[in-house]
Every structure is written in structure tokens, then in C-alpha cells.
Design a protein around this nucleic acid. Structure first.
Length: 799
RNA sequence: GCGGGUGUGGCGGAACUGGCAGACGCGCUAGACUUAGGAUCUAGUUCUUAGGAGUGCAGGUUCAAUUCCUGUCACCCGCACCA
């Protein structure tokens, strides 16, 4: 057959999409399978080869599942709110709505050119009013339960994007999008109380089938640590300061306290502080440093003694000095620590620098040289009631003591902070809240949702960083839903994470006007059986969406607690030069060009064959040709078809069916394809291929390269397409050959091989091995110490 | 610093519970068919002085180690003054 991929691919795409061949049916009798890929941001550049790789995995799984008799939901949509579109709008003056619609159209066409078996009847767009109505609805529910709240805090602010960033978006002290240094700014912001769900987000991970790396990244992000809260009285005041410590056992060794520069006690007790100017100056300096500098430059610890305030160590009533230092973070724990220089490296460094007492309370180290931080083998000393105990016992005892005396208690602390949930931007979901001078903050009634984004002329935030919505009077001015008096709308919008935190639920019932999704449909389809996406979304997106899902479960909207059963993450496709693909490096490979030159089947195949799916691998232009040649060879097999059965290749055929079936399930697409190539190579060598066998070959290649397989399938006489053709099962009896080759080695080195029949008894095997010519020569005159036989594999002779 | 991971030909990468290292693909070499080939097909392709050496490096366990153990080096990813 002449393999004219252009005509073939177009023909079959039209056939599939025009006939709704990939429609998922609600409540079908078949077992359901929900395969989810992270939906794309429809950027102006169109698809990236990374998209192809990300979708091809579950595309294969979905096609295979349909053949296995499942009712498959394999949806796609668009996560279309966000900065790039908005920035483009600012530059060109084109409304984001128009840009988004255009980009979505381009993306949809490209996805169809890839031949993906998405159910295009369920496409969602997060910027669609019918969609973000429900994003707002969820926000309202969170607000009603007190899980969405407004607070004044220091926020990460990007001076270039003029936008508030979450901790996740300002990792390393740089803006996620433009790399500008992030500055701290005090602002009124919306928070979602994700910390209330910290423990459940952690325990829920147990049931998620995923890589250790993905699991630990989420665990680290949640950052649970256990210890105690302890109150330190401040002398001559009625104040006490609470600290969090994981080492309450070292309490007797605490010789000073350190608080973050932002700690509130400074303001409350400023009358008592003699060196207030110095402290303010220190605080100003700390604020000027970006988070990044604070980490990088402050290896050398700095701090200022608070002159005028003295703390009292609650276990021995010793008076200890209090310092302000920026190595203590206001956002972690209580923003204050008890310093135990003898047994904490940072405190040790600080104490040495400022000449503070260092007391040994755990023996085993040498605290004249460095802090002794061993928490398993040490024995407590100089610690009153704890003396002689091992660290774990001491922890228990001191907590008991603290609780009896009401000066502290056992505590758990999480690194995770509440989720800063607002942006001063136009292209996002308006936060459905009304500020009433009488009633305070009131949510927009559910029946009035959505709060529609108004048309505006200008999309830039104001210079003070306020949302462009704040410039539109008709939008802002409204009436209070509670008292009917004049009130003002919230002008901030939600971050891009909002729409993607629940989108997988909407696929299940994308057109529902009454609810975000029908409960019975959710019951039928949930959970997501397999979710694939980028490694970069593993901490933020996965945690956020699990949080929303847990919340929706709590209020009875969804039937399951956790949304995902299995999560995988594809590795990046790097540029041919081995660097990450980027515009500036000019090493971007355009998938449309590859489709043009080699076809979609080849492209899909190659993005999976390129290497281990979960590993990053460089692109190779030549490598693509190999995948194309494979398909050419497959097409040429048509000439060998015959009505007569042929035994010659049956073993490899059935071995391949088995191996490919297994490899797909264990995310080993590269080896699955390698085995398919081997099979086709073998079939190329034989004279005749029985048509019935060839059908099986087509079926196992179909999920990878569906267009060419459909074409060949039709050419050998099938009227029905392959979408629901039954997946072949391997025949066990065909897996093993009756005669096998066994390796004969001497001292572990392969010297010869012998042919014999399967399951030959041990004695016979040895006899045969010994009589092999080469072996005879090498063994003659030597002492045979031992002979090991591994059935059907090898014989090892030890001399 | 802590956590996770990876080191195998010229390149991308295979190798199930220890059992023929280098599957498959690229590239390269030679040949065939060709006016031509950057198309296709066939054969070869870890290195190397017949023997041997070889999976980052140094040891160990074993009849047998890419695989298990100890130490060590390098790189990648994530978190990071986390109390």
C-alpha cells in the first residue's frame, strides 16, 4: 500500500469526529473509565510538542480501554483565564474574549489534526460564563463556611506584572512569569483556608497511586512537623510569647529568644523598648531584601537585641534576652523561636556571633565546637526533671509537664500557608462579594451568579496595583443583597488556579444549568481513574484541586473524598540541543510542521518512543524518521497477506500482544513501541502473513497510530471502524517455543549454547552441555567443582 | 543543608523477582537497486593486539551483579535560615 498519510489522516479524522465515535455515554452498562489530561492554556503560539506527549499517553490508554469494552470519558477543555492573553490584549488592544476564542479554535483544530480521541462534545472553557458561574459558586460556598476570608498581610508583589503572587508563584523570590524580584507589600487580600485541610491533604495521599517523587513533593509542600507550643512570659508585662518547637526536650538549654522583625510585640511594647530606632531600621532593611536575598545573603546571621524586653524561660525561670533577626520568618510557626544554641546550628551560629550562653542539655556531642543535633541517641543533662532520659522520652515528659503547668502543649505545625486567592487583574473570575458599609462583606446570592466580567476599554491594572475593574463605576456600584443599601463590588479577580481546581467535575456534566454537575452522573464517573499532567503542576494544582474536592465532598456536592486514583507526570521534551525549549533559544519544535512532513501517527509515536515517559529527553529530528519508517514497513506488510495460516511468527506475535498490553499499563510506552517495531521487523522477513493474524497486529498498533491502522483495517475488508474492535488477548500456549537455546557458561562467562527442548531434565541438560564441543575443550583436565542449572535459561560450570 | 532521582556504545535509550549487557531507534560503514539518492532493501556496528576488558569510581556478597550491600564522585529536580 502506498502510505499517503495526508489523505488517510484527514479521512479518518473526519470519520471519527463527524460520527461522534468518541462520545462518552452517561450511565452506560459498560464499566466506566475516566482518563484525564491537564487541559491546555490556549496560547497564541498553538500547540507545543509537549502537548502531544502529554496527551498521547492517555490517548493510548483510552483507545485501548474502548477496545477492552469500557465506556471511556476522555475529555479536553481550555484553561483560558490568565496573564498571557491579558498582556496580549494590553499590547494590541484586542479584547481577551476575542483572543481567547481565536486561540481555542486554533487549538481545537490542532488537536483534531493530531487525531486525539477526545470527546469534543464536552469541551469546556473556564472563561465561559456558564463555567465560571460555578467557580464563583464554589467560592461563595467557601465564604459561607468561613474558608474564604480577607486579611491584611504582607504579600509577595511583582512590581513588573503589578500583581500579587502566591508563595507558589514566587518560589526563589522571583516572579513565576517574568523573573522580576518579588517585593513584600502590605495589602488586604483574600485567602482560602487550605490549612484547615492540611492533615487530610496529607493522609489522602496514601490512596493516590503515583511516583515517590510526586508524593514527597506534596508532603514537603504541606510540611507537617510535630512538637510543642510553649509560652515565654515577658518580664514586667502581661504579655507572653508563644513559640513553636520540634525540640521541646531542649527547653532547658534555651538561652535567648529570637523573633521575626515583623513580630507584633514590637509595636505593642514599643514604650518599653529603648532602641526602637535601631529595630525599625533593621526591620526596614529586612523588608527591602527580597525573600531570595534574605535566604542567599543572610547566611551570616544578623540581628538586634531588644533593649528593654526580657523573656523568662518557663521551665527554669531564667531571664533570657530577646533578639530581632530575619532568620526567623513571620510566616512560619509563630514568628518567634526559643533559641537553643547548644543543639541547633542556626542558633549556635547566632550565639557565637553575639557571645551568648551555650548550654549543653544533651550529652554526646562537643558543643565547644558545634551544635549537637542528634535527637535519637543523646541523653538529657542539665535539664532538671528530664536528666538521664533519652530524647524521645524527654519530649513526651516535657510536653506532659508543660500541659500540667499550662505553659505549653503538644502542637502540629504545617509549612503550608493559606492560599492567597486574588489578583488585581482583568482576565479572571470576579470575586462574587459585595462590600456594604452596613453589613460588611456579603456574598452575591447564588441565584444572581455569575458576576459577569464587564466589558472594559483598558486592561492594565492601576499603578497602585488595583484591578482594572476598580475603574468601572457601573460595575462597582451596586446594592447590598442583605439591606438593599448602596454598596460596592469586590474588584479583584481570582487566580488562574481557580478554574482548574474543579474542571474535571464539569466534564461529567458540562451543560448543566442547575448544578455544577449532577450528583448521579458524578457518582457514575468519579473518580478520575488516571490523571496525567506536568511535573510542574504536581504540588500546586494537584493540592489545590484536592483541597476544593475535599471541601465539595464535605458540603455534599461530590460523592468521593479524593478526586484522583492515579497520577502520572510526563517528562519534558527538550530542544535538540538538550536545553529546555524556549523562544529565546530558538530551539522550539513545532508539532504542526512534523504533522505536515510525517503525519500525526508518526508524531504521536515518536513523542512516546523518544525515551522513558516520565523522564526528560531531547528531541531528535532524525529520530522522527525512524518512527515514520516503522509505519511505512507496517503498510508494506499488506502485500504479504494470505488466507493460509502461518505458524512461523506466532510466538513473537503473542509475546508482543502480552508485552504491549502490560507496558501500556505501566507507562512504558517506549518499550511497547520498541516491541511493536521488533514484531513488524520479524513479519517483514516472512513470506506470508495470515490475514487473521495481521488483524491482531493492527489492533495492538491502533492506539499508537490509529489512522494508518484504520485504513489498513478497512482495506482488508472491514466495514466497521476499529474504535470498539476487541483488544486481542495473548494465547498462553503460543508464548513458549518448544525448542529453546540454553547458554553454557564457565565461571560465569558465556562459552557456548546448546539447543534443546523445553523443560529438559537437569541431568540431561548437564550431559548435553558437557558434550558441547567448546565446553569439552575448555573443561578437559580441569576439576569441576560445581554445576548450576537455571531451568530453560543457562548452565554454569564452575572449575 | 534536607528530600527525591539519575549515571550503561558516537547519540536517545533497553535489560522481569540477580542469570547471554547494549533490545528498539538514530547515526555510521559496506553492498544491492538506481541517471542520481538525503528513497528503499541487505549485512555489519561497545572497545580491543588471537586473549580479554567493559554499565560514574573503589571495595564487598555470590557459581553468577547494570541489578544486592558499604563507601565515594558527578549531574538533575524539588524544598529551603521550617524553629
Amino acid at each position: 500500500m502506498e502510505y499517503n498519510f495526508k489523505a488517510i489522516e484527514k479521512k479518518w479524522q473526519d470519520h471519527w469526529y463527524n460520527n461522534g465515535r468518541f462520545k462518552a455515554l452517561d450511565f452506560s452498562d459498560k464499566p466506566k473509565y475516566y482518563a484525564l489530561v491537564e487541559f491546555p492554556y490556549p496560547s497564541g503560539q498553538g500547540m507545543h510538542v509537549g502537548h502531544i506527549r502529554a496527551y498521547s499517553s492517555l490517548e493510548i490508554v483510552s483507545r485501548k480501554r474502548r477496545m477492552e469494552g469500557y465506556n471511556v470519558l476522555f475529555p479536553i477543555g481550555f484553561d483560558a483565564f490568565g496573564l498571557p492573553t491579558e498582556n496580549y490584549a494590553i499590547q494590541t488592544g484586542t479584547h481577551p474574549r476575542i483572543v481567547t476564542d481565536r486561540n481555542i479554535e486554533v487549538f481545537t483544530n490542532q488537536l483534531k489534526q493530531g487525531g486525539y480521541s477526545f470527546d469534543f462534545d464536552r469541551v469546556i472553557d473556564t472563561t465561559d460564563e456558564d463555567y465560571y458561574k460555578w467557580t464563583q459558586w464554589i467560592f461563595v460556598q467557601l465564604f459561607k463556611k468561613g474558608l474564604a476570608y480577607r486579611d491584611k498581610t504582607y504579600i509577595n508583589f511583582c512590581p513588573s506584572c503589578k500583581v500579587v503572587l502566591s508563595n507558589e508563584e514566587s518560589q526563589g523570590g522571583k516572579c513565576d512569569r517574568c523573573d522580576t524580584g518579588v517585593v513584600q507589600k502590605e495589602k488586604d487580600v483574600w485567602f482560602l483556608k487550605i490549612t484547615d485541610y492540611a492533615e487530610r491533604l496529607l493522609t489522602g495521599l496514601k490512596d493516590l497511586d503515583t511516583l515517590p517523587r510526586i508524593r514527597t513533593e506534596q508532603e514537603n509542600w504541606i510540611g507537617k512537623s510535630t512538637g510543642a507550643h510553649v509560652d515565654f512570659k515577658v518580664k514586667d508585662t502581661d504579655e507572653s510569647m508563644m513559640v513553636f518547637t520540634t525540640r521541646p526536650d531542649t527547653l532547658f538549654g534555651s538561652t535567648f529568644m529570637v523573633i521575626a522583625p515583623e513580630h507584633e510585640i514590637i509595636e505593642r511594647q514599643k514604650d518599653k523598648i529603648n532602641n526602637l530606632d535601631e529595630i525599625y531600621k533593621y526591620k526596614e532593611n529586612a523588608k527591602l531584601k527580597t525573600e531570595f536575598e534574605r535566604v542567599e545573603l543572610a547566611k551570616d546571621k544578623t540581628g538586634v537585641l531588644i533593649d528593654g524586653l526580657v523573656a523568662i524561660n518557663p521551665v527554669n525561670d531564667k531571664e533570657i534576652p530577646i533578639f530581632v533577626a530575619d532568620y526567623v520568618m513571620i510566616g512560619y510557626g509563630t514568628g518567634a523561636i526559643m533559641a537553643v544554641p547548644g543543639h541547633d546550628t542556626r542558633d549556635y551560629e547566632f550565639a557565637t556571633k553575639y557571645n551568648l550562653d551555650i548550654i549543653e542539655v544533651i550529652s554526646g556531642g562537643d558543643i565547644s565546637k558545634e551544635a549537637y543535633t542528634d535527637s535519637y541517641n543523646g541523653i538529657l543533662v542539665n535539664s532538671g526533671l528530664l536528666n538521664g532520659l533519652k530524647v524521645p522520652e524527654a519530649k513526651e515528659k516535657i510536653i506532659q509537664f508543660l500541659e500540667e503547668k499550662k505553659i505549653g502543649k503538644e502542637a502540629v505545625n504545617y509549612k503550608m500557608k493559606d492560599w492567597a486567592f486574588n489578583r488585581q487583574r482583568y482576565w479572571g473570575e470576579p470575586i462574587p462579594i459585595i462590600h456594604c458599609p452596613k453589613c460588611g462583606m456579603v456574598h452575591v446570592p447564588e441565584e444572581d451568579l455569575p458576576v459577569v466580567l464587564p466589558k472594559v476599554e483598558r486592561f492594565e491594572p492601576s499603578d497602585e496595583g488595583e484591578s482594572p475593574l476598580s475603574l468601572i463605576d457601573e460595575f462597582i456600584n451596586t446594592t447590598c443583597p442583605k439591606c438593599g443599601g448602596p454598596a460596592k463590588r469586590e474588584t479583584d479577580t481570582m487566580p488562574q488556579w481557580a478554574g482548574s481546581s474543579w474542571y474535571f467535575l464539569r466534564y461529567i456534566d458540562p451543560k448543566n444549568k442547575e448544578k455544577l454537575a449532577d450528583f448521579n452522573k458524578l457518582k457514575y464517573w468519579m473518580n478520575v481513574d488516571w490523571y496525567n499532567g506536568g511535573m510542574e503542576h504536581v504540588t500546586r494544582h494537584v493540592i489545590y484541586s484536592r483541597f476544593w474536592h475535599l471541601f465539595l465532598y464535605d458540603i455534599g456536592v461530590v460523592p468521593t473524598e479524593e478526586p484522583y486514583k492515579k497520577r502520572t507526570a510526563q517528562g519534558l521534551i527538550l530542544g535538540p540541543d538538550g536545553d529546555k525549549m524556549s523562544k529565546s533559544k530558538g530551539n522550539i519544535v513545532n508539532p504542526l510542521e512534523i504533522i505536515e512532513e510525517y503525519g500525526a501517527d508518526t508524531l504521536r509515536l515518536y513523542t512516546l518512543f523518544i525515551g522513558d515517559y516520565e523522564q526528560s529527553t531531547p528531541w531528535s529530528d532524525n529520530g522522527v524518521k525512524g518512527s515514520k519508517r516503522f509505519l511505512d514497513k507496517l503498510a508494506r506488510l499488506e502485500d504479504k497477506l494470505s488466507d493460509e495460516p502461518n505458524e512461523k511468527y506466532l510466538t513473537i506475535l503473542h509475546k508482543t500482544i502480552k508485552a504491549v498490553s502490560e507496558d501500556i499499563e505501566s507507562v512504558k510506552f517506549n518499550t511497547a513501541i520498541a516491541k511493536l517495531m521488533t514484531l513488524v521487523n520479524e513479519l517483514t522477513k516472512v513470506k506470508q502473513i495470515y490475514t487473521k493474524d495481521f488483524e491482531m497486529v493492527l489492533k495492538i498498533i491502533y492506539p499508537f497510530a490509529p489512522h494508518i491502522c484504520e485504513e489498513l483495517w478497512q482495506r482488508i475488508g472491514h466495514a466497521e471502524d476499529m474504535v470498539n474492535a476487541p483488544w486481542p488477548l495473548h494465547d498462553k500456549s503460543k508464548l513458549v517455543e518448544s525448542s529453546i537455546e540454553m547458554v553454557v557458561s564457565i565461571n560465569g562467562k558465556v562459552r557456548d549454547r546448546v539447543k534443546l527442548s523445553l523443560d529438559t531434565p537437569k541431568e540431561e541438560v548437564i550431559a548435553l552441555a558437557m558434550s558441547a564441543k567448546k565446553i569439552k575443550e575448555l573443561v578437559s583436565g580441569k576439576d569441576i567443582k560445581k554445576v548450576i542449572v537455571v531451568p530453560n535459561k543457562l548452565v554454569n560450570i564452575v572449575i
